[in-house]
Design a protein around this nucleic acid. Sequence first.
DNA 1: TTAGAATATACCAATTTTGATATATTTTGT
DNA 2: ACAAAATATATCAAAATTGGTATATTCTAA
Lengths: 103, 103
Amino acid sequence: MPKLKTINSEVLLNKQLKDTEFRKEYDALAEEYELAGEIIRLRKKSGLTQRQLAELAGTSQPSIARLESGEYTNLTLSFLRKIGRALGVIPEIHFRKLGNVHN
Amino acid sequence: MPKLKTINSEVLLNKQLKDTEFRKEYDALAEEYELAGEIIRLRKKSGLTQRQLAELAGTSQPSIARLESGEYTNLTLSFLRKIGRALGVIPEIHFRKLGNVHN
DNA sequence: TTAGAATATACCAATTTTGATATATTTTGT
DNA sequence: ACAAAATATATCAAAATTGGTATATTCTAA
């Protein structure tokens, strides 16, 4: 998975987003960061520290840190469910059609 | 009398669905089967056999069969992305609040 | 019914996440 | 600035998925 370079120009980014290959990578990365951010939001909304959430979920603080860092892109659904259960939510997977350039 | 039996089963199911513990398990399972079903639908919509999808995704027919059977509940997101890419879709994860009927 | 395709199951090795612990770094409050 | 809490990083073992191959079962059309 090619790493996204930090790009200063939004124009360039928008241009690249129209390239389907680039778009796929971008969407995948965005999804991961979104996921990590969502978990952080949920945890803070619950007023929990990583350690507390770990305790509730039956895992360790470093595992939560790893999850929130987005370090692992290959998380298992069971792990996500475990965390979700501790936060009172259930992860759902939906498939979104890849954006067609022509519409 | 099969009809009566079905009705009783539904009554029992509704009763059980009110039990939170049971509910969690049920939701998790439903989600998994939903996911497997979704993939089957997408594959057939594309007119692909398991072998063809496997080829496109860079995996094997048995792996697709496993995925569609819902055998493994602990799928990795990377695997789902791989399959999704071959089907022209991207898997997205959202967290749904648990338990409350009113959302 | 029968042959061939499609799908499901079985098995084991390989890869990767997760578990677990220790420790470092950053943040927060006083 | 200091101390304590919170978070991030590192390392290695354990557990689970995935890869790959072979084979069995089911489905489909002639």
